[in-house]
Nucleic acid binder design. Structure first.
Lengths: 214, 214
DNA sequence: TCCTGTGAAACGGTTCACAGCC
DNA sequence: GGCTGTGAACCGTTTCACAGGA
């Protein structure tokens, strides 16, 4: 149990877990760091260093037992519990997230959907009814939700983040293109799709300064 | 024009640009590295280091001219040209991306949408008709598209990526939960929403090993 | 022999601190 | 005096290399 685990390690753990689950469903009993690295897109040294931060899961000369290791990783990533997620913003991105089957499969249950638009409030997505954003605090407290997804315009994000934190949220997935200010005990991950495209166009422009071949 | 610019620098450049555009629309003429850092969510040293990689845009004692700097950043990020984007996968995520107004505003035009589902092929999104994935090469070459978005199941992603690269794609935005193998001259950014949630639940679990307060 | 676990070295990114220009 | 641009110090991450157990 390390004091501080790097962001990149956590990402790699997710990759390992996905690779392990594929191996598991193929009935492969053990895997070496080399093999796991190959399938997870990193290096063997990385695999061993990453895993050794949390304990000694492997056997020298043999490798790692696939079911045991994937179980450990699930526990490390907090996937042995179910998480209640409140979704703020019933737009396109919110809808895509809501219907994404992998979320429920990984233990993330979207228990409520909120929006500010009166036209959307009252409509139902599956069995979940869209409620007004004013209900944010009630919903977080009522469901005991730890996670909040903000799929809202940038102007609204900071205020909603503060309200969510005050109501007890511990993690925020932020789709708005603003840097949220939250207390240290709250985790935030930013998803900024325009920024990702900008990284691509930058890389291409750098490689070929004449500009895109359009 | 540096040989190698770090991933994190590019992300920060995007942040600076967004902050600058807000300043620009407020009519602010100049900005110091301190101010820009505050609004971009970093430090003044970072702002200066990042920008100095591309030239000397500021004046000592005065700061940076807002319109000039934002113009420079747009050019650095490749936003002075329009980019043609081919979207593969007409599901929820594809649809969310397609309708996202900020893309067009930043110069990214979705020129074609492809899908493998016969039920979807032939339908229209706005003025764009959904075409079969078989058309991938034709579409990339026909439109001269440099960017491809893969919003498809993990099994299909690697094969489609290879086809896209062979047809001339230079950048891939990958929503599938697999590590794509592409030649060095092709840029890839991965967007993995489940992984982002896993990072959150990990952070919360670490802080409070008893598990989520559900 | 095979493969893990881990110190140690190498690398790269961040922060510091100040020289130099306005 | 104010603020940029930048070498140098610092620090965390990645990579290496090997000791030691199966």
């Amino acid at each position: 149990m390390p004091r501080r685990v790097s962001e990149s390690t956590i990402r790699r753990l997710s990759h390992y877990l996905r690779a392990l689950e594929r191996l598991e469903s193929d009935g492969v009993p053990t895997v070496s760091s080399d093999e796991l690295a190959e399938r997870g897109g990193t290096t063997a040294a990385h695999v061993r260093k990453d895993l050794s931060q949390f304990g000694s899961f492997g056997k020298r000369g043999l490798g790692y037992k696939v079911p045991e290791l994937s179980d450990r990783l699930r526990r490390i990533l907090g996937l042995d519990a179910r998480w209640r997620v409140v979704l703020v913003g019933a737009g396109r991105i919110g809808s895509a997230l809501f219907e994404y089957p992998n979320f429920a499969a990984r233990g993330y249950d979207c228990v409520a959907v909120l929006d500010a638009d009166p036209d959307k409030i009252g409509r139902s997505w599956g069995s979940v009814r869209i409620r007004p954003v004013e209900d944010l605090e009630d919903v977080i407290k009522g469901f005991g939700a730890s996670l909040v997804v903000l799929a809202v315009p940038p102007e609204a994000a900071q205020c909603l983040a503060e309200r969510a934190v005050a109501a007890g949220a511990r993690g925020i997935m932020n789709f708005a293109a603003v840097q949220l200010r939250v207390p240290a005990h709250v985790a935030v991950t930013d998803v900024n799709l325009v920024m990702e495209l900008e990284a691509l166009s930058f890389a291409i422009t750098q490689a070929e300064p004449a500009g895109p071949a359009v």
